[in-house]
Structure formats: C-alpha cells, structure tokens
C-alpha cells in the first residue's frame, strides 16, 4: 500500500501551517520529513493517519493494505504513549484485544522477541528506560502489522546514545521486513541514516522546499555528511528565524 498526499493545506485559526503539500510515500521505503520547528510536520503526520482533518487537499491510500494488517496506518509517538498500568506484554495486548485472533499470545511473543523485549514482558513502564519504552511502542506498532508506520519524532525524547542504538534497531527491523514509514524528525542525522527520501519543509506555512533522494542502501550508510550539510544549508536561515519567533 502507498500513500499519496495531494494539495494538503491546513490552518489553525489565522495561521496557515501547511500550504499545498503534495507527496508520495512509496511502499517499502522510509520517507523522512524534516523542517524547522513549527513547520507543520507533526500536523502533516496526524493528517496522514486520519487523526486530524485537513482544511483542503486529500490523503489517499493507493492499493489495499496487505492481508492480515489489523491497523494499516500505525503511529509511533514521541512520548511513547504507553499505559502505565499495564506491563509490557499488556501494552502490546491492548491493541490486539479488539480483534479476534486465535494466536494473540504468539503474536505478542513474536513482536517482543523481534524488539528484544522478551525478558521484560512483565515489567511496568515506570521500570523501563526511555529507550526500552520506545522499543515497547515499536513492538506494539509491529503487532498490528501496519502497512505504513507513522513515526512522530520517535527518538527525540531519548539521549544520544540510546538514539544511536535504536536507529540500529530500526535499520535491522527494516532490513528484515521492508516496512513503509513516514518518519518525522528535526534531527538531520536521523533523517540521513534512515531515510530513502528526505522531504524538507519550509517554515510556516509549511511548503515542500526540496525532496532529497538518498540511494545508498540503508545498511551501509555512514554519517552522510555531505547530504546532512546540504539539508542544513536548506534549513539554516529558516531554523534561525523560527527560533527567534514568539509562540503564536
């Protein structure tokens, strides 16, 4: 399944946050969305998954979600959004309970194994580090077999070392199973490590500034300094202006 964004425009009151954004998310690839703060990247992601209605334009699903997908458009949130009163396995079970599944516990065991969380199945979120919490959230997302993963700054709440480890984990997961993802971030290093395609949004109102294709295979990438420098060149002035702006 692919996603196509056509002429997406959105306003909050007087402020225009997204202006005529058109975008393709091809199957089996990771599209990173970067831009200065307040450029509407999180709004874009909420619209991709149907959590918010755009003022104009459409988000189209092209093709059917794969067989057995319980929740084709699945989010991974920045703040993990785990239920603190459920243990790790219970948090994964939450999203499966509304579906009739003969092998629910097998699915849970499988995703916990894939995210290397098996031995923490009975732990409560408050006992886990930030990196572990986000791995639980990723396990929960994998459990519903998404067609497209919508990741909203998934590593931004983590420290640099944990971020590095989780990036490796995500690459490993993608290498094994070529999932489709939209990955919103403000961190250019993440974007060039994980993205097949990097979409640079301009400052409010968010417009597409440039789409950078990165052909290098995901597994063998280094820091990609040239691409990073290029992206930063596109964003620097706007990032500075965004920083100096009063919050509306």
């Amino acid at each position: 399944m692919e996603l196509r964004v056509a002429g997406l425009t959105h306003r909050y009151g007087e402020t225009c946050v997204l202006d005529d954004v058109s975008l393709e998310i091809p199957a089996g690839r990771i599209v990173c969305v970067v831009g200065p703060s307040g450029c509407g990247k999180s709004t874009l992601l909420r619209m991709l998954g149907g959590l918010e209605r755009p003022a104009a334009g459409r988000v189209l699903q092209i093709g059917r979600p794969p067989e057995g997908s319980l929740n084709p458009l699945t989010y991974v949130f920045q703040d993990f959004a785990l239920l603190p009163w459920r243990d790790v396995a219970g948090n994964v079970r939450l999203v499966l309970e509304d579906h009739r599944l003969p092998n629910r516990e097998d699915v849970i065991a499988d995703v916990l194994a894939r995210t290397r969380l098996t031995e923490f199945a009975r732990a409560l979120p408050r006992q886990l580090s930030g990196g572990m919490k986000q791995r639980v959230a990723i396990a929960r997302a994998l459990a519903v077999r998404p067609a497209v993963m919508l990741m909203d700054e998934p590593l931004s709440a983590l420290d640099a070392q944990t971020r590095e480890l989780l990036m490796d984990d995500l690459i490993g997961l993608w290498m094994r199973e070529r999932f489709t993802a939209v990955y919103v971030t403000h961190n250019l290093a993440e974007a060039v490590r994980l993205g097949h395609r990097v979409v640079v949004l301009s400052r409010r109102p968010g417009r597409i500034r440039e789409i950078v294709e990165i052909d290098e295979p995901l597994g063998g990438r280094g820091a990609m300094e040239e691409v990073q420098a290029h992206l930063w060149g596109l964003m620097r002035d706007e990032a500075r202006a965004a920083d100096a702006e009063l919050v509306p």
Partner: peptide, 19 residues
Amino acid sequence: TLIRMGQSFGLSWGSIVRK
C-alpha cells in the same frame, strides 16, 4: 496522548473508556 494513541490503533469507543 493516551486517548489519541487508542484512537490511532482503531480501538473501539468502549475499549478506550474501559481500558
């Protein structure tokens, strides 16, 4: 954010209230 998470996973209204 927890409620929005529930909605994003397609949980039913009753499940969101109860769980």
